[in-house]
Design a protein around this nucleic acid. Structure first.
Lengths: 214, 214
DNA sequence: GACAGAAACATACTGACGGTATGAAACATA
DNA sequence: TATGTTTCATACCGTCAGTATGTTTCTGTC
């Protein structure tokens, strides 16, 4: 019987070819591993997720995993990076929609970050496990991260005179950390819907107060 | 030769008696375990700390550890609880010193929390490892925790009219999370001293703005 | 003070998991 | 087609959290 490796003569070129190139093979494996890892890390958490489980779900063995990743920590780092990129995309999108008003843009970016961080899976990866598993330095040195975006938005708002002049770093920490904690609190509130509404209302007041400050 | 169990006839009663009571034995062992665990958790981190290492440092075996604690997680929980109690004591002290002014008291409490959280060992336990190891619910249900103190302070400031009326929860999250993130950023700044000064200056402005808000 | 029972610990062991070593299969290049 | 490299599979090791069981130390009672 044929071993099912019949060539797909479709026009898309997206189905696996009869003889996939090494790059394609590699990419597919990495993709499978990342998807499996993300699913398990997001639900069971970093510590409770075994690499064997990841490999089984991805349909490969540890040989493949350790060929593409240096270890569990680096695998998680890759998952975390992707998550940050997805979050950053949402933030940027919300920010750019009202970029004409520098301070309002920061508000919309903050709202986007808060709402995106309500997903328990996102929380588990980015807020609970990442600090302990990666450390602060590794989280910062990722190229794309949401804290950096927050900083840039605030710095721009200051440059444009939308809020009183000040160093941008302290406010960045307060806002970014505050939003992260808010996200954790909101989803665990008795009424998450109401809690989110309250959080956004308060965030609005906070932004207004900051803009009005001397 | 005598087995060195000569009774200490000192007046203090603090030295180990010739026949220590079970309570004393227990307490001493628990104390040794907690001290050893806190030292290792604070430096190497939760995951990198083995219970064997804790036992060796404490001068006991795993039999003793598992007699007093249900497992690694619970041991860490006990260490974390102590840390929170210490922090809460510092916060309360700073708060009460200026309790007459409800909002200023919250500021002083916040400053105390921020400054206390600059210690890398405190950070490692309370900010990096605790969320992943304990989870949010377990961190909240501790009886004594700093977030609760923040909430009470803010709620009181609202009741007393020191800041505009609003629900206390959202602001609690923003402030507590912001301070935590600030502590992590400050100690990793190029010039921590200057970063702390900037953070406190900005915190002052934030408090003024919140008090002035409509 | 002898003794039964319980509390406080010690010792030996197991299973699971992260990581490594080594070899085979798939692909690339000539 | 032959050779080297990439990609992965398999077998194995060390470590560590947790358990099972035995031993010592204390407590209450006669």
């Amino acid at each position: 019987m044929a071993t099912a490796r019949t060539a797909a003569a479709d026009g898309t070129g997206r189905q696996p070819r009869a003889r996939p190139t090494q790059q394609e093979r590699s990419d597919a494996t990495v993709e499978d591993l990342l998807a499996a890892a993300r699913a398990l890390f997001a639900t069971a958490g970093y510590a409770a997720t075994s690499l064997d489980a990841v490999c089984e779900r991805a349909g490969v063995t540890k040989g493949a995993l350790y060929h593409h990743f240096a270890g569990k920590k680096q695998l998680f780092s890759a998952v975390y990076t992707r998550e940050q990129e997805r979050l950053a995309a949402r933030i940027s999108s919300a920010y750019l929609a009202v970029a004409a008003d520098p301070w309002e843009a920061v508000f919309e970016g903050s709202r986007a970050y808060l709402e995106a961080s309500l997903d328990p899976e996102v929380q588990r990866i980015t807020l609970f496990d990442a600090p302990g598993a990666l450390g602060w330095e590794a989280m910062r040195d990722l190229g794309v991260n949401c804290r950096e975006l927050t900083y840039k938005g605030i710095a721009r708002a200051i440059r444009k005179g939308a809020i009183p002049d000040r160093p941008a770093d302290p406010l960045t920490s307060m806002l970014y950390g505050g939003l992260s904690e808010s996200a954790m609190a909101v989803v665990r509130a008795a009424d998450p819907q109401a809690a989110l509404a309250e959080a956004l209302t308060d965030l609005r007041r906070l932004f207004d107060a900051l803009a009005a400050g001397s």
